[in-house]
Design a protein around this nucleic acid. Structure first.
Lengths: 109, 109
DNA sequence: TCATTATATAAGCAAATACTTATTGATAGC
DNA sequence: GCTATCAATAAGTATTTGCTTATATAATGA
């Protein structure tokens, strides 16, 4: 692995919000509009984060009509390391389920 | 592990020059003046990098008279992960031995 | 076809980062 | 005590990063 690749990889993971994104994706595939509610962030901010995670090949996207569904790239050579790192982190407070209770449940497809 | 801790940890590792520093420290403890030659960087730049690695508890320092000897923190809870990540990287081109051949061998202690 | 929805992209801004030159602080040797 | 050496720190600069508001693009539904 090139140094530049490792730098891209670790920098992609090593951001507070992107770690949260990855923690959520461990459970299930999600779309941007779900993340905007879960993380209380603007759509472009989420989109930029996904662009970085995609560039590092940590996530994959699937277009489903007007929705883009994001999931973890389980085929990544270092996927087990990522899982290990993420397992060290606390579970995020909000869940898709708690969004419903807040009346913020979004519907993707 | 707190999210902020993980961020500090990954950001500390995720820099090209700091990865090189860590690769060298896998082999042996070294001082700033050795790094300045190995990495062809200024002393303050190296010092700032060591400050970041120390803040993330990845390295430890030992003062020996006028020299500060740096070594990996093998007691770090995630030390095995660090070793694994570093093992994925190519060996640095310069070595302490090649410095001698270049007439740049420095003497610490 | 037009309006709506989802999201990528553009442009700009503030903060963080990696570097530099200069200075300061600590230690050793004479 | 003075001088030399090593390295931490200060201050400044250029670049990168994470965010915003605005806009463009793509897909769906009426």
């Amino acid at each position: 692995m090139e140094y530049s690749q490792m730098e891209l990889y670790l920098k992609a993971i090593g951001d507070h919000n992107r770690m949260l994104i990855l923690k959520y994706l461990m459970k299930e595939a999600l779309c941007i509009c779900e993340f905007t509610e879960l993380l209380d962030m603007t759509q472009p901010a989420i989109s930029q984060h996904m662009r970085k995670l995609k560039a590092a090949e940590l996530v994959m996207e699937e277009k489903r009509s007007r929705w883009t569904i994001w999931s973890l790239n389980t085929r990544h050579p270092q996927y087990p390391i990522l899982l290990h790192l993420l397992s060290l982190l606390p579970e995020p407070e909000r869940t898709i389920e708690s969004l419903a209770a807040e009346g913020k449940k979004v519907i993707c497809e």
